[in-house]
């Protein structure tokens, strides 16, 4: 046991002397913003092994959930900018400013890799009294405020899709927040909520097993993974102007991280994400691979932020105007 102790102690000492040029000198820490079993978690845990092979070190991943991911984002921002702490996160931080959640967003971080984006679908408890999105809308209009929608807190994917729905339709529901889409999907199977917008990848296995039913794909075209699911624009063409829209998953470090460390991480993630097994896994689960970093990723992030911030703000969900932060109108 003493040996273990000495080992652990030596490891912690090594942390403080790590230099950039021979990065990585020790294992990395990956802080996952959302709960275990959710979509962010699945993407990160499946890309990590390929990246570890490139880096020659382990990425020890922990789920640090809560506050729409603010807790993890805030945590990583308080760690040293040495590249040893990775933020493994989804789209949420781009809305923190408008939602009044935090002063941080991805402009405080450097995009090591924006791995993939997901397609939202709208799913329901299998016993819910509606079978298509049109029926859901009718049902909600007959019972305003009574239908419970699974959510992941303000600024989470379900709340944004919810804002888009209510911006174009008369759509009043009660949003019940959970610790991520994994726990929310579980709660929906138990009947705690009637329906929810979720990422296709997180829900697809449950849909295939017939445990939940899919009402619509929140996109302009059907997905090869669930060919029977109807695109929402088929019944409600007014959504066309907002689409395609979807969550994304990326790996970030603090923007003050030394350039050579950034470069090493970018190269490792680029190669890791290109791995055939990971690519197959993404497409099987209905994700669209992106694998971009640096400036290319930054312009994608900025565009996403401007579109979504204004939708959220115009829907009355945002606490502060995007204008305050200089986020341009799309």
């Amino acid at each position: 046991m003493l040996k273990t102790l000495v080992g652990a102690f030596a490891l912690s000492m090594a942390a403080s002397f790590a230099m950039a040029n021979d990065f990585p000198k020790q294992d990395l820490q990956g802080v996952i913003q959302w709960g275990a079993g959710g979509s962010t978690d699945l993407v990160m845990r499946s890309v990590a092994p390929h990246v570890e092979k490139e880096l020659g070190r382990s990425i020890v991943m922990t789920n640090k959930t809560g506050g729409v991911g603010v807790i993890a984002t805030q945590f990583v921002s308080t760690q040293p900018a040495d590249g040893y702490t990775l933020l493994m996160s989804a789209e949420n931080p781009q809305l923190y400013k408008v939602m009044g959640l935090s002063n941080l967003d991805y402009s405080n971080f450097y995009p090591v890799n924006v791995l993939a984006r997901g397609v939202p679908i709208i799913v329901a408890n299998k016993d819910a009294p509606f079978n298509t999105f049109k029926e859901l809308v009718d049902y909600v209009q007959k019972n305003p405020g009574k239908v419970r929608m699974g959510s992941t807190g303000p600024g989470g994917l379900p709340s944004v899709v919810g804002a888009m729905l209510s911006s174009k339709l008369d759509f009043k529901v009660t949003a019940v927040p959970f610790d991520g889409d994994g726990p929310a999907l579980t709660a929906m199977q138990g009947g705690a909520v009637e329906f929810m917008p979720a990422v296709l990848g997180a829900a697809v296995e449950h849909v295939k097993a017939g445990r939940i039913k899919v009402l619509a794909i929140f996109d302009k075209q059907a997905s090869p993974v669930l060919p029977d699911a109807r695109p929402i624009t088929a019944d409600y063409p007014q959504f066309e102007s907002l689409l395609p829209w979807g969550p994304f998953f990326g790996v970030f470090v603090k923007s003050e991280t030394p350039d050579d460390v950034k470069a090493k991480l970018v190269a490792a993630f680029k190669k890791g994400a290109n791995n055939e097994a990971f690519q197959k896994l993404l497409s099987d689960r209905g994700y669209v691979s992106m694998n971009m970093s640096g400036d290319e990723a930054n312009s994608f992030l900025k565009k996403w932020q401007s579109t979504t911030s204004w939708i959220v703000y115009d829907a009355g969900m945002g606490k502060k105007s995007p204008e305050e932060f200089g986020i341009p109108k799309p």
Partner: peptide, 13 residues
């Protein structure tokens, strides 16, 4: 997560 990256689809099926 481990099952997932080993190519299995952990789910109800």
């Amino acid at each position: 997560g481990a099952l997932f990256i080993h190519g299995l689809n952990p789910g109800p099926l």
